[in-house]
């Protein structure tokens, strides 16, 4: 869906990205994670031509973006950012309708789509006629996300979209984003400096450092022993083993034998970290899970 081919980006004398070659498949939620200044936002902005590569090529849906009309390309890709950037002189509904209006949708279609998006993002109907200054931070982020999704783009770019809201709202919005990703199957590229957010949301993670990709792949593989030390340290922190176990499902290690009498019950969708936690709490070395048993040895064998 999105491909980078030996891409370099230079701002003045500083090289922001060097030699990036990677692919983002359709339907992935790809989290770009790394410290500030690592080039993750620049990488994101290459996709809709807000930044042009000084060398190399960027392909979107198989086409070299340098050959596409930037306005048309950007209208076909949703974009949400930390500062939201709602238009202060336009109502919530008008803000959401920006791209559909640019694309010449008729009024009934725009109204229907706006209502649908407000429902999807749990925005109260009464907010439609309000100006952005009357919104809370969380509401503004939701409107920004609705605006990015308005013309139903198959690609959504998000630049630290939940950076400026309080932790509770952030958790809600993350859950919502995961729900939207699962429900719509869109390709989402998410920039974040928060390893937890990347681990929680990303089906694919790309770890950047100093303008280079140091590691890429599914979250669990990047924390596994033997993975790139920087990525492991960034994502795993001081407990990489537990972080990785939190990403692996317990059900895969369950054996189909009757659990011993009184074994503590582990929910079927729990992770290996949940299993370890329950064992640490109960002192049991065998847990009942999904009709079978989960042995401590089987859990540790996943390490």
């Amino acid at each position: 869906m999105i491909a980078f081919e030996n891409v370099h980006v230079r701002f003045g004398t500083a090289e922001a990205l060097s030699g990036i070659t990677m692919m983002i498949e359709a339907g992935e939620l790809c989290a770009l994670v790394g410290p500030s200044g690592s080039g993750k936002t620049t990488l994101l902005r290459l996709v809709n031509r807000l930044v042009a590569p000084s060398r190399g090529r960027v392909f979107v849906r198989g086409e070299d973006v340098a050959r596409l009309d930037p306005a048309k390309l950007r209208q076909s890709i949703g974009y949400a950012m930390q500062s939201v950037g709602l238009f202060p002189h336009r109502t919530v509904a008008e803000n959401i309708a920006t791209v559909p209006r640019l694309r010449g949708w008729n009024a009934p279609r725009i109204a229907a789509r706006t209502a649908e998006l407000m429902a999807l993002l749990h925005l109260d109907r009464s907010l439609a006629g309000r100006l952005p200054r009357a919104l809370s931070g969380g509401q503004a982020q939701r409107v920004g996300l609705a605006r990015a999704l308005a013309a139903d783009p198959d690609i959504l770019l998000m630049d630290e979209p939940f950076g400026a809201v309080d932790p509770i709202t952030r958790r809600e919005l993350r859950t919502e984003l995961r729900r939207i990703h699962q429900a719509t199957g869109k390709t989402i590229v998410l920039v974040t400096h928060d390893p937890d957010e990347a681990l929680e949301l990303g089906t694919q993670l790309v770890v950047l450092r100093g303008g280079r990709v140091v590691a890429a792949g599914p979250a669990a593989s990047l924390i596994a022993p033997g993975a790139d030390a920087f990525a492991r340290q960034l994502l795993g922190g001081t407990q990489p083993g537990l972080r990785r176990f939190a990403l692996l499902p317990a059900a895969a290690s369950v054996v189909p034998e009757a659990p011993p009498q009184g074994a503590p019950e582990l929910p079927a969708e729990a992770s290996l970290a949940d299993a370890l936690s329950l064992m640490a709490e109960s002192g049991a070395t065998v847990l009942a899970c999904a009709g079978g048993s989960l042995h401590a040895e089987a859990v540790l064998r996943q390490a």
Partner: peptide
């Protein structure tokens, strides 16, 4: 003019005239 609003307009694909 709020740089955020301008950046958002550009990122959403408004042509410079718009």
């Amino acid at each position: 003019v709020s740089p955020d609003a301008r950046a958002a307009a550009e990122a959403m694909g408004l042509p410079p005239r718009d």
